[in-house]
Simulated assay, not measured.
Amino acid sequence: MSTPTVITVAPTGAEAEKTAAPALPVTLDELLTCAKSCERAGASVIHVHIRDAMSRPTLDPARLKDTVSALRAETSLIVQLSTGGAVTDPYAARLRVLEAGPDACSLTCGTVNFGDDVFLNPWPFVSDLYQATQRCGVVPEFELFDLGHIATLHRLLDRHGPPYGGRIHCDLVMGVPGGFPGDLPTLAAAVAALPEHATWSATGTGRTTLPVMFAALAAGGHLRVGMEDTLTYTRGRPVRDNTELVRRAAQAATLAGRPPMAPPEARAFLGIPG
């Protein structure tokens, strides 16, 4: 319980529209400004989705490489690219994300109903993506939306061995319609089912943001926050920017006796080379 807290910021995502959330960082300059501010507020990892010139979600390889390079030049944050993209992105484009050379990537361990859509992650794709992370030297963060995904995680490890970097770190994504509900009993059941010695973060989407945050801190987990996951700071009050979400998480972690972990310490904790 004395371990400092890894705070991941997920600033953009693939669902929110810039017109509905003006503070959403969709250009590279906006993302860099956001990243530097969030690092000062306590973030050590940035989970990145990118947008094209029309602010639409994209997995364009050149834009991804430019984004990784710029974030490395301007911050000391761990750069974690999303391999989920938008729910409509093809598998081949999602695999090519690794070619941008990030420190880490998300790896969703199964298909899930995602509101009115379906986020497809069949076993052959999950297996191929995991083996690609091992070959490319990219540390995966296992994104888990329900208990069946944890069973798939065990299957991956049994079939293909440990991840690059040697550390098993997971993110429990809670509150998505179709996945885990964002409550304490569900979080406790998920943590109990994780592989031995795995570490984990929790993401509370929408109105589950605060309950999941406090439950994760109490249970020794880490945090992911950001405008990808919620656009409301409190009931009736929109999020001003990503920094205020990181700042609130850092304050909560400090009150819990687990202040934010600095990026160099988080690299060692997650098995990411310096």
Rank of each mutant, 00 (worst) to 15 (best):
L255M: 11
V176I: 09
P90S: 04
L32K: 06
L77C: 13
P273L: 10
D116I: 13
L270W: 01
T108C: 11
T19F: 07
V139M: 01
A250G: 05
V68I: 12
F142Q: 09
P140Y: 06
V112C: 14
G226Q: 04
L147P: 00
L129S: 10
T152N: 11
A151E: 14
F119Y: 14
H149M: 15
L28W: 06
A86W: 11
E196Y: 05
A86I: 14
S82K: 03
L71M: 08
L187M: 15
F269M: 12
R237S: 11
I272E: 05
A104Y: 11
A249Q: 01
F145S: 01
P273S: 07
T230M: 02
N121D: 11
G13I: 05
E265T: 12
L32M: 14
E265R: 08
I168Q: 03
C136I: 01
L144E: 13
A262M: 12
N121V: 13
M54D: 15
P177A: 07
V6H: 13
L172S: 01
L270S: 07
T205W: 03
T203V: 15
V138H: 09
P57W: 07
M1K: 09
D229A: 00
M54H: 14
K18P: 03
V246Y: 09
P61A: 09
L157Y: 11
A216P: 06
T203K: 00
T203G: 07
I150T: 10
R237G: 03
T205Y: 00
A93Y: 01
G110K: 02
Q131W: 02
V191K: 04
D60F: 04
G178K: 12
L147M: 03
T3A: 10
T230I: 05
N242L: 08
A202K: 13
H222I: 01
A252Q: 06
P102R: 01
L32H: 13
R240K: 05
T67Y: 06
T27Y: 03
G271L: 11
T199Y: 05
N113G: 01
V48G: 00
F180N: 00
C105T: 11
D60Q: 08
G110T: 02
T27R: 12
A41Q: 10
A93T: 07
A202F: 12
T67M: 03
T3F: 09
D103E: 12
A62M: 11
Q251P: 04
L270C: 01
V97C: 06
L231D: 04
Q251Y: 09
A253T: 01
D146K: 03
V79A: 11
G137F: 02
K36P: 13
T83V: 10
C38D: 11
G115E: 02
P211H: 05
A43T: 03
A262C: 05
C109M: 15
W200I: 10
T27C: 05
T88G: 03
P263G: 09
E15C: 06
A193M: 14
L217A: 02
R56C: 08
L270M: 15
S69H: 12
E228N: 12
V126H: 08
Y91I: 08
T111E: 00
V138I: 07
H49S: 14
T75S: 14
P4E: 09
L270Y: 04
D158Y: 00
A43D: 14
L32C: 09
T209A: 13
